Amino acid sequence: MTGILEPVRSRLIETLAGRSDEVPRWVLALEDGEDDGFFEAGSAPWVVHGGMPTLVAGVRALLLQALHPGALAGVRDFSRYREDPLGRLAGTIQWIHTVTFGSTGQAVASTQMVKAMHKRVTGTFVDGHGVTRPYSANDPELAAWVHIAFTDAFLTAHERWGSPIPGGADGYVSQWATAGELMGVAEPPRSAAELRAQIGAYTADGELRGGPEVEEIVRFIRRPPLRRMLRPSYRVVFRAAVASLEPRHRAMLGLRTTPLDRVFPVDRAAATVLAGAGVLLGPQTQAELSARRRLARLAAD
């Protein structure tokens, strides 16, 4: 069975990490840090970011983030998502896992690297009220939207398809606020209710909008250039991400419930796909395994 599944496993690892022939150096480096990091082993961020529902969460986060015209402008104007979509995905995973599983110094250094790359991401966009405004990827306002969209996506997906979260939803939102602060977010939400209230405020205030540019991004996210053997599973992941969105956000994205969704609810299919991914990738990410080796070394010193 292992031999039969190995090609699928290799393609999945390649999609998530950028290559399948070796463990990335940054993952191995997580073993070398000199303290426990911002989050202890078994904490809410460890559980949420180490779980298979992150596969759905990542897609959901991209969809939700695209509704903010400032965030969308940065992706459209500067991202090489069409030429190198897997590279962009691997870079995002590197930051998430380094902040989650790395030492304090590694988390801070990774964040500074991201912020340095963001310095060039500047321009103008037309906001939800039709006003032309400047944007910068490092603006606290834009960073705040990216943070809450990310947090909501990973929390929602894990609540729907994952294991119990230590400290519950509030525990995850409160602890992951640290990542928002690292990125320059002034007042990241610290409870699930506050998180949803902030997203609701963006929506009610007209800061989010759909339109042709959003729909173009949605078309790419719906059908990215994945290996053929991964496409059937990805279609389920995409449907699951869409189903987990609020109806008002689905409408803004131009996504509608289809007869297929009513006849074949996606939750069970998504659970099956995620369970299969867990079999292929193992119960713990390579980043978590490196972090646990670091913690064992520190405990023995």
Rank of each mutant, 00 (worst) to 15 (best):
V8H: 05
V8F: 13
R11E: 15
R11Q: 15
T15F: 14
R19I: 02
P24I: 01
W26N: 10
V27E: 04
A29Y: 02
A29I: 00
A29G: 09
D36H: 04
A44C: 07
H49F: 13
G50C: 07
V56I: 13
V59W: 05
A61I: 02
L62K: 02
L64Y: 03
Q65R: 06
A66H: 03
L67D: 02
H68L: 15
P69K: 05
G70M: 06
G74Y: 06
V75D: 03
L89V: 14
V99I: 15
T104L: 00
G105M: 04
G105W: 07
Q106C: 06
Q106W: 07
A107N: 04
V108T: 10
V108N: 01
A109M: 03
T111M: 02
M113P: 00
V114I: 15
H118Y: 11
K119D: 14
R120S: 15
G128L: 11
V131C: 10
T132I: 11
N138H: 13
W145M: 09
V146T: 14
H147F: 13
F150V: 11
D152R: 06
A153I: 10
H158N: 12
S163F: 00
P164N: 09
G167S: 10
G168C: 08
G168R: 05
D170H: 07
G171H: 10
S174T: 09
Q175C: 04
T178A: 09
A179R: 00
G180M: 03
G180W: 07
L182R: 06
G184H: 07
E187M: 02
P189G: 04
A192G: 13
A193V: 12
R196N: 08
I199L: 15
T203H: 14
A204T: 14
E207H: 14
R209L: 08
G210Q: 03
E213N: 13
E215Y: 09
I221R: 03
P224Y: 12
M229K: 09
M229R: 09
L230W: 09
L230F: 13
R231Q: 11
S233W: 03
V236P: 00
F238Y: 15
A240W: 00
E246H: 15
E246N: 14
L253P: 02
R256N: 10
R256W: 05
T258G: 01
D261V: 06
D261Q: 07
V266E: 08
V266A: 01
A269I: 05
A270E: 05
A271T: 08
T272C: 10
T272P: 00
A275G: 15
A275H: 14
A277I: 01
Q284F: 00
Q284W: 00
Q286K: 13
E288R: 04
A291D: 03
R293L: 01
R294M: 02
R294C: 04
L295I: 10
L295A: 07
L295E: 02
L298V: 06
